[in-house]
Design a protein around this nucleic acid. Structure first.
Lengths: 143, 143
DNA sequence: TCTTAAAAAGAATTTTTTGTCCTTTAAAGA
DNA sequence: TCTTTAAAGGACAAAAAATTCTTTTTAAGA
């Protein structure tokens, strides 16, 4: 089981972080990214394709083709990737799964979860890839 | 998609909350609980069976049989149900899915998520069903 | 004791998610 | 122009999760 994001979303986030620590618009092919992330090439490219529709990454076909960030790292937030892959549904649903959970008819942890949810949203939307860069490098240094 | 718990875990949590607002050791059959929670009887009873192995609920077969809390509401925390159904894995895994994420080799949101994770754990372990009772009643009043 | 009602157990099915493969399209460069 | 390489896209396979069905066991009470 994953923590909160789907496996697909995790891979998408990892792939974008990978691209964010590289120089602007340098192209990486799916094979290279997949090796680094240790997941199947097809899976990575599927995710990067989805992010291409969303305009977050760009792609180039053919020899010397691959993927690159379509925007500046300062213009991309992790929440953009989450939005593109999993959607923002999790930020609107009851953590205990109760239908119709709201401030009028709250579940027992409604308020507490509301705060945690906001912190989570903030974690994903406060800093851009640019600002996360240092922290990312320390994780993905090896390449 | 669910927020953080599996569907099974959500149902288990809801079922236990249902039982917690009733009088001690009063028996409810799966059918009644399933009607209230608006999910199939078989699904509810599967979950309650799992919680029976864990000693959180008790069960009685045959006519007038059903399920009841095996401990006092003051002795049960939501985290116990999560532990029994989904396990505590989510409290030990990288939210971005990076393998080997740790304070030595942190992902870009490692620290922030660490705090959020703790708050989440606390939300589930601080108050007992006894203490949550009021809040639960306001949600599950109708019965 | 017999009938009925309910959980327990496990098998079977369906749905969703994840992962693979194959064909098409596009670009680079010889 | 031809060959090679890579993404795009679709179809499919495998695995996991959710849901349903069937049978067995147990207890209540007539």
């Amino acid at each position: 089981m994953t923590v909160i994001f789907s496996k697909q979303c995790e891979i998408a986030l990892q792939a974008v972080l990978f691209l964010s620590i590289k120089k602007d618009k340098i192209i990486y092919k799916a094979t290279d990214i997949s090796k680094e992330l240790k997941v199947p090439k097809e899976f990575v490219s599927k995710m990067l394709q989805k992010l291409t529709y969303s305009g977050i990454v760009g792609s180039k076909k053919g020899k010397k083709g691959g993927f690159y960030l379509a925007k500046r790292p300062s213009q991309i937030k992790l929440i953009d990737i989450v939005k593109a892959i999993d959607g923002l549904e999790i930020f609107n649903k009851c953590v205990l799964g109760f239908p119709g959970c709201s401030s009028e008819e709250p579940c027992p942890v409604h308020e507490t979860w509301g705060k945690i949810r906001e912190e989570t949203y903030e974690m994903l939307s406060k800093e851009s890839l640019e600002q996360l860069k240092e922290k990312t490098v320390s994780k993905l240094l090896k390449i």
